[in-house]
């Protein structure tokens, strides 16, 4: 295996956006681009998330071959899932956002595209209750097996449980 060099590449966000926009246009996927703190956010409908990610990964020019992070956010009326993809060869970053309804949230799994999505999705499934269709192994990851709540939803509140301390018999 040869060592592949990755060097600092200066990126122009507008150019990246235009490249991405053209790619999406050819595949007839609608999406809104916006910039936030110098990072590119792409908002798309949740039905096309899988196709978009597949396109971004397999495309010869883009090569988004690395998942930085997958995470969810609860905005009370709706949930949002964010895929941060990174392209090693071009030094591109894109954050793909999709809104999911908060009742029976469901989205297609991307484990078939990225192996590393496995645990990310399991984590989101147990923390937000988002069901990933087609995930091979949707089990609890960090929480105990028998929990019935999704802790990172906003309606889950941290409760302080007061426990009374009773001295054991032998110390009395």
């Amino acid at each position: 295996m040869e060592i592949k060099e990755y060097n600092f590449i200066k990126i122009d966000n507008d150019k990246v956006i235009s490249v991405l926009r053209n790619k999406l246009k050819t595949e007839k996927i609608d999406g809104d681009f916006n910039l936030n703190h110098g990072q590119i956010y792409l908002e798309i409908s949740k039905n096309v998330v899988k196709d978009t990610i597949k396109l971004f990964k397999n495309d010869e020019d883009l090569k988004f071959n690395y998942i930085k992070c997958i995470t969810g956010v609860d905005y009370k009326n709706y949930l949002e899932i964010i895929y941060s993809l990174y392209s090693f060869d071009n030094n591109y970053t894109v954050n793909i956002k999709a809104k999911i309804e908060s009742v029976n949230p469901e989205i297609e799994s991307v484990t078939g595209i990225f192996w590393s999505a496995d645990w990310f999705e399991r984590e989101i499934w147990e923390f937000f209750g988002i069901n990933f269709k087609g995930h091979p192994n949707l089990k609890t990851l960090l929480l105990p097996d028998d929990v019935s709540y999704h802790p990172l939803l906003k309606n889950f509140e941290i409760k302080w449980e007061e426990r009374k301390y009773e001295r054991p018999e032998i110390f009395k």
Partner: peptide
């Protein structure tokens, strides 16, 4: 890269 590895683990696999 597929497994989202990073840091020394990735570098040892031939990616500087």
């Amino acid at each position: 890269i597929e497994w989202s590895m990073s840091g020394p683990t990735l570098r040892a696999s031939g990616a500087r």
